[in-house]
């Protein structure tokens, strides 16, 4: 059925492609979101974003149903069972944030074989038949270094990493290393692990600061910028350029410091609304739009003149967010 519609799309849709890509009716289709972990603010926002966009899509008659299924533990076995159940329950598409890149591949292949569309995002899977809406964390690290190199001629850099051994941490770190290889007048004078947590970052930075020379910039991974700023303030040092990670605390600090003393920096992270991009990719796939299997999520960056605006639209305690539209998903097909 899907293949048939795809064929229809290719033949009839060419002229319409720009404004109205080849889309069959998906109003009787059901989409499930299998989520491996729900225990932090980022994931909560990810789930809420999905629910909001999905509810609107159901109200608009785009799809029949969309539901979120969380696993209680971040375990591949449990998520594999959940995906099997979702297939048995007759969902046409499964959107998933995976507990493992490889361990779910068999059950995903089985789902694909039964005609189910599988879209993985954030923590993607390697199964060939699944769409992967992934994040280029290496590019994020490079972006940070490029920004600093645009502001300063050179200097000392403090790197705050996340958790040792985490793939995202490794990728951002390698991006920062790649960036520094291009801008050789910067030197990393210290590295700490902040666990993406404000209080931990504050403690780690406060511990290493006494032994450091002047720090001109701090590269981060998100969730750690505000804590770093607190540590510099408590040590009586000037707060250097700290790359922020779109958290409310960080944006608030930045906006306040900007108002008080013209503090300048940038902020970059992934929007938790990436779940909605995965939702639309699934919907498009159901409708027969042949999107590429590998899709890279754009970063949500905040520039100096945008901080007040983004802060105003970010809930206290949350992360700056955007909800993606069907057009955003379709743009990847062009």
């Amino acid at each position: 059925m899907i293949r048939h519609l795809q064929l229809f799309g290719t033949v009839a849709g060419m002229a319409l492609l720009a404004s109205q890509p080849a889309n069959a009716d998906t109003s009787d289709m059901r989409i499930a979101f299998s989520n491996n972990f729900a225990g932090n603010t980022f994931r909560q926002a990810m789930i809420r974003s999905f629910e909001e966009v999905a509810a609107q899509a159901v109200a608009d008659g785009v799809i029949a149903e969309a539901r979120v299924f969380n696993t209680s533990e971040n375990s591949a076995t449990e998520q594999a069972q959940q995906i099997q159940n979702l297939v048995l329950q007759g969902y046409n598409a499964i959107v998933l944030n995976a507990s493992s890149a490889t361990a779910l591949n068999d059950v995903i292949q089985t789902a694909c074989d039964q005609g189910v569309v599988v879209v993985s995002f954030d923590n993607t899977v390697t199964a060939d038949c699944a769409w992967k809406v992934g994040v280029d964390f290496n590019a994020m690290g490079q972006l940070e270094v490029d920004y600093i190199a645009g502001r300063l001629d050179g200097g000392n850099v403090l790197e705050i990493r996340g958790a040792a051994g985490d793939p995202a941490d490794t990728a951002i770190h390698s991006g920062i290393a790649d960036g520094l290889a291009r801008h050789t007048n910067f030197e990393v004078v210290g590295t700490v692990f902040g666990q993406w947590t404000q209080t931990v970052s504050q403690r780690e930075v406060a511990g290493i600061l006494p032994g450091l020379p002047q720090v001109d910039a701090v590269v981060t991974q998100g969730g750690d910028g505000f804590g770093a700023a607190q540590a510099f303030e408590a040590a009586g040092r000037d707060v250097p350029i700290i790359i922020m990670g779109n958290r409310y605390d960080e944006l608030k600090y930045w906006a306040d410091a900007k108002a008080a003393s013209g503090y300048e920096t940038m902020s970059v992270s992934i929007a938790p609304g990436v779940s909605t991009l995965a939702f639309w990719v699934a919907q498009q796939a159901l409708g027969g739009n042949d999107l590429p299997k590998d899709i890279t999520v754009p970063f949500l960056t905040v520039a100096q003149d945008e901080v007040e605006e983004v802060l105003a639209s970010t809930e206290p305690g949350a992360v700056a967010n955007i909800l993606y539209t069907v057009e955003d998903a379709q743009a990847f097909g062009q």
């Binding site: 004078v189 406060a206 511990g207 600061l209 006494p210 032994g211 408590a234 040590a235």
Partner: peptide
């Protein structure tokens, strides 16, 4: 450590 920050280290560790 590269700089002499003994007292600062004492402050941070006590906090």
């Amino acid at each position: 450590s590269r700089a002499s920050g003994g007292l600062d280290l004492l402050t941070a560790s006590m906090s």
